[in-house]
Design a protein around this nucleic acid. Structure first.
Length: 684
RNA sequence: CGCGAGGUAGAGCAGUGGUAGCUCGUCGGGCUCAUAACCCGAAGGUCGCAGGUUCGAGUCCUGCCCUCGCUACCA
């Protein structure tokens, strides 16, 4: 029976291009699922769009001396075209900067406001008087009151790991202008999540205990157990959707309030274009709503957005939120700022017409249950050993044999032997297993069922050996090749979701004209190609990828990483001049490390014994992530000796070892002769 | 620190109480229609560690270790 589905894929944020992590985590699974549902005859709206609001874009614009509009136009165009070229089959890809979205988001805000859902609160927040802006915690830096790190953020000190309030920082500074933030009162609207705790508990914790993924369920449970808090849904900012109330000038909707509404406005835009009613896709309880996201988005899609939808009293809730974990690249976290990524638009240029290879590799190794690693070595191996050797080679064998023995016409099916029946049976059983996997969002498993079908084909040919029988029993060969051709056709149907470009090419080679109901013919065991049907000459579906190409990609990664490093090799801004007396108050000495050990239960802290003249002092330093204890022994360092002692994690620390942070984010000791340092390095 | 997920052959994964499995890689053999492709076979695991429950534990319980993530702006 045909059902209605609304499938959403996380809105990409338009401050950077799309990389393989986005694809493996969200877009390829969502695309496969949508294509699958369509081939089953379901009514599918596969919805996405660019997320174009928020502080990050406004900041990036300021930094690059552009307008936010220029930034979003650039990335929206890039993202849009690379999705298109990659075959992500969105029914609509919109933008949150469009009028229809502004209107939709404001309407939903209005509805919630009129229903009295929001709480209004006036609080004092940090304000930058020079930039004339309120500051998010992240945009205030200052000295950590706990470890004296001078670059602690308003919410957390990354050196000692303590969580902080921006108010606790010593000498707070705005990262926008360098000005000293002051307090200013401001009014905001809060979504009282705490009042919906029971709703979330019943709906997810009780209702979806067994059908949602453990990582998603666990995350939600963790939020609910720790007590949901009211959350502000407005911000004082100049970039975003204006809050549609008279007493809210200068305020915009919080980006996380407006972004998920983008799914709805994108659906509206699509429905208008094709003359449909959008409402059933969001308001009809028969519709299945599925959100594809990455794990960092769980709270928004499982708690905040559903509460918003629920509170309006008009919308349906997601049936499932199959969030994936993260993909690493060559053993390291993918990082946009460090340029450690494989960008989709660059892949498309480097590997033209090979979209399916990346689709296959990423889905075969999708981070479904835990973080996974993408390596070019694996990319090459999967292409050469699976797509080329198993899938492509089987198809090629069948085409070559059919032309060699039957002039490219499908031969008759004569007497069926047990091995023929066995093979034909798998044309039904494998698609059924494949379907089960897809319906459970187990795409990695589904890709293995697909390749399994090609394996069955290779084995069938190896077992029956038609090239030997042709001399003695041409009738038998006729049956074998008919069977092999049915299998090839089945392969072209089963691969439509994961390998859409390949599937299309193969169907052209087979001259498969009617595309209607291919899936049904497949699982009902109908004859897929009739005798005497003429097929095209063989052409290769996949090509081998050689070592040189892979070396080139690996080299490129290294170089772009270096390139990014040289850009970020920035010189810290000058601080105001100080009185020489202040400097004289600092006591700096050279010390030598004579012992080092990690402080237990911490990530970064290392306990060092420092020999200074005749004395030995104990100093705790946040360098454990960058240095092995053994390598530190014997090292001479610059030591600030008259900093008041303090105790970190139960270990007394006297003074402070001077360190700089280099372009790779690695802490280096201040020894100007060292190759790790560069001129202009900020010492602290 | 708290919370969540993960830790199973060289690599990537499946396996929720009953003789440890799949794919890739490795080694050996077969085949020659095919993109030096394909098919068969073998080697390779104290299932993170330590206790416990049970006739029986990868699977349940307890403690610990390691990796990743979340802690409210990175998929």
């Amino acid at each position: 029976m045909s059902k209605r589905y609304t499938i959403t894929a996380a809105l990409p944020y338009t401050n950077g291009p799309i990389h393989i992590g986005h694809l493996a985590g969200v877009y390829i699974p969502a695309d496969i699922y949508s294509r699958y549902l369509r081939s089953q005859g379901h009514d599918v709206a596969f919805i996405c769009g660019s997320d174009e609001h928020g502080v990050a874009i406004s900041l990036k614009a300021k930094k690059e001396g552009k307008t936010p509009q220029e930034i979003i136009d650039h990335y929206d165009a890039l993202i849009r075209s690379s999705f298109e070229a990659f075959g992500i089959s969105f029914d609509n890809y919109s933008r949150t900067s469009r009028a229809i979205h502004h209107k939709t988001a404001q309407e939903i805000f209005q509805v919630l406001h009129e229903k009295g859902v929001f709480e209004e609160k006036t609080t004092a927040q940090l304000y930058d008087p020079e930039a004339k802006q309120f500051l998010a915690d992240r945009f205030v830096i200052g000295t950590c009151p706990i470890c004296q790190n001078q670059e602690a953020y308003g919410d957390q000190c990354e050196s000692c790991g303590s969580s902080l309030n921006a108010t606790e920082l010593i000498n707070p500074q705005s990262t926008l202008s360098g000005a000293k933030p002051e307090y200013k009162e401001t009014k905001h609207w809060y979504l009282p999540l705490d009042r919906y705790s029971e709703f979330i508990t019943k709906w997810i914790l009780e209702g979806h205990k067994n059908d949602w993924k453990p990582n998603v369920y666990g995350q939600v449970k963790s939020w609910v157990d720790s007590g949901l808090q009211p959350r502000a849904v407005t911000r004082d900012l100049d970039w975003g959707i204006p809050v549609p109330l008279i007493d809210a000038t200068g305020k915009v909707l919080y980006v996380w309030f407006d972004a998920p509404i983008g799914y709805i406005s994108s659906t509206k835009e699509w429905a208008e274009k094709i003359g449909k009613d959008w409402k059933p896709y969001w308001c009809d309880s028969e519709t299945q709503l599925i959100h594809f996201i990455g794990k960092d988005n769980i709270v928004f899609h499982c708690i905040i957005f559903p509460v918003m939808l629920h509170a309006t009293g008009q919308y349906i809730l997601p049936e499932n939120v199959p969030a994936n974990e993260f993909l690493n690249l060559e053993g390291q976290k993918i990082s946009t700022s460090k340029n450690w990524a494989v960008w989709l638009h660059e892949y498309l240029e480097a590997f033209p017409q090979q979209q399916d290879v990346l689709r296959y590799v990423l889905i075969a190794n999708a981070p479904e249950t835990k973080d996974n690693d993408f390596t070019w070595e694996e990319f090459q191996a999967r292409n050469n050993n699976e797509l080329v050797a198993i899938f492509g080679n089987f198809v090629n064998r069948v085409f070559v044999l059919t032309h060699k023995y039957f002039e490219g016409r499908v031969p008759d099916l004569k007497t069926l032997y047990p091995e023929d029946n066995l093979t034909l049976a798998s044309l039904q059983t494998i698609p059924i297993q494949y379907s089960e996997s897809v319906e459970k969002f187990r795409f990695r498993e589904a890709s293995q069922h697909l390749i399994q079908l090609a394996r069955v084909g290779n084995k069938y040919l190896a077992d029956t050996e038609p090239w030997k029988l042709i001399k003695t029993d041409p009738d038998r060969v006729s049956t074998i090749l008919n069977t092999a051709l049915q299998l090839t056709t089945a392969l072209s149907i089963l691969s439509t979701h994961i390998l859409p470009f390949t599937s299309e090419k193969l169907q052209k080679m087979l001259r498969l004209n009617s595309k209607i109901d291919l899936w049904n013919s497949l699982i009902s065991g109908k004859e897929l190609l009739s005798p005497n049907h003429q097929i095209e000459m063989a052409s290769l579906l996949f090509e081998k990828i050689d070592d040189a190409q892979m070396d080139f990609q690996r080299e490129k990664l290294k170089n772009t990483e270096k390139g990014a490093a040289s850009i970020s090799l920035s010189i810290a801004p000058e601080k105001p001049n100080i009185d020489p007396k202040v400097f004289n108050e600092l006591q700096l000495k050279v010390g030598q490390i004579i012992a080092a050990e990690k402080v237990p239960k911490t990530k970064k802290l290392m306990k060092l014994s420092l020999e200074v003249g005749q004395e030995v002092h104990s100093v705790v330093s946040g360098i454990a992530e960058d240095y092995e204890p053994e390598l530190l022994i014997g090292k001479k360092v610059t030591w600030l000796s008259n900093l008041a002692s303090r105790t970190l994690k139960g270990v007394e620390s006297k003074g402070m070892i001077l360190l700089g942070e280099n372009e790779e984010g690695k802490l280096v000791f201040v020894s100007p002769e060292d190759s790790n340092t560069h001129t202009g390095l900020d010492i602290n």
